[in-house]
Every structure is written in structure tokens, then in C-alpha cells.
Amino acid sequence: MNEYSAGKVDDYQDGDRKVVLCGEAEVGVFRIAGEFYAWHNRCAHRAGPVCQGRLMKRVLEPVDADGQVRAQAYDECEDHIICPWHGYEFSIRTGRHPGNERVRLRKAELIVRDGEIYVRA
């Protein structure tokens, strides 16, 4: 399996991402909280360019005593990527959709060697 360069570790600040062409596939490489993650750039819903979507904390909708949602909050421990086509959310760390664990992104192998990042797709 071929390895493709995704740049140097020092090129990525926290919260950065880069979409890398790996042969005929695209892979998104993310640095979140000092850790690197790599996902194929195809949404599990309709194959949209998920890795080019918005990054944000997981959205929560707390329910009050009457069973009503009055506001939204954010889970500061969970970073999500939101597909720009239809708004499907996925965990950057696990690739899973928060509402259906069977729906997930396809992981790409990520290698950090001598300060360089490589992906295998």
C-alpha cells in the first residue's frame, strides 16, 4: 500500500486540517487537542466531502423538566466535523455519527515518522 505525504507535524496547529490526494482517494488529516486523525473524505450518508466541512464542538440540546428543549449547549470534550452537503455530524476521534453508531466515516491509516505525517488509503 502506498504512503502519501500530508506534511510536517509542525505545519499543523491545533484545530488544523488538510485534505490530501492519495491516488484516486482524498483523505482529511486533522490535528485536534494535539492528536492526529485521518478519515476518507466521503460522508457515510451520501458521499459528500465531509472533511471539508465545519469543525465544531458536539451540539447538545438539554431537555428541561417539562420535556422541552429551550437552548443548545456544546460538549467541550467532543469535536465534530459536519458534512457540508446535508449536515451529518461525525466525531473526529471515532468517526461515528452521534445518533447512529452504525453510521461512521472510513478511517485512513496515519503514520508519523521523523516529524513527517503520511497516510495510507
Rank of each mutant, 00 (worst) to 15 (best):
M1F: 07
N2Y: 01
Y4C: 02
S5C: 03
S5I: 07
A6P: 04
G7C: 03
G7I: 11
K8Q: 08
V9C: 09
V9K: 05
D11M: 00
D11G: 01
Y12R: 01
Y12C: 04
Y12P: 04
Q13N: 12
Q13A: 14
D14G: 03
G15H: 04
R17S: 14
V19L: 01
V20H: 06
V20K: 01
V20D: 01
L21R: 13
G23H: 06
G23P: 04
E24I: 09
A25E: 15
A25K: 13
G28H: 11
G28L: 03
G28Y: 08
V29E: 02
V29G: 05
F30Q: 08
R31T: 02
I32D: 02
A33R: 15
G34I: 08
G34S: 13
E35W: 00
E35G: 02
E35Q: 15
F36G: 05
F36Y: 13
Y37W: 11
A38K: 01
A38Y: 11
W39G: 05
H40W: 07
H40E: 13
H40G: 03
H40L: 15
N41L: 04
R42M: 14
R42L: 15
R42G: 01
A47M: 09
P49A: 12
P49M: 05
V50E: 06
V50W: 02
C51F: 03
Q52T: 01
G53L: 00
R54V: 14
R54P: 00
L55C: 04
M56L: 14
M56Y: 11
M56G: 15
K57A: 13
K57N: 13
R58S: 00
R58C: 03
R58W: 03
V59S: 04
V59F: 01
P62Y: 08
P62N: 11
V63L: 00
D64Y: 03
A65S: 14
D66M: 09
G67H: 09
G67A: 11
Q68S: 09
V69P: 05
V69Y: 07
R70Q: 12
R70N: 14
A71I: 00
A71L: 08
Y74A: 10
D75E: 13
D75R: 12
E76A: 15
E76L: 12
D79I: 08
H80A: 06
H80V: 15
I81H: 09
I81F: 12
I82E: 13
C83K: 11
P84T: 13
W85S: 02
G87S: 10
Y88G: 05
Y88D: 07
F90C: 07
S91L: 07
I92F: 09
I92K: 02
I92R: 05
R93F: 05
T94C: 01
G95M: 03
R96L: 15
R96M: 10
R96N: 08
P98L: 06
G99H: 09
N100M: 07
N100K: 12
E101K: 04
R102N: 11
R104F: 08
L105N: 03
R106D: 06
K107W: 00
A108T: 04
E109Y: 00
L110Q: 05
I111M: 12
V112K: 00
V112W: 00
V112M: 07
V112T: 07
V112A: 06
V112Y: 01
D114A: 10
D114T: 00
I117D: 04
I117R: 06
Y118G: 02
Y118S: 07
Y118E: 02
V119Y: 09
V119I: 15
R120K: 15
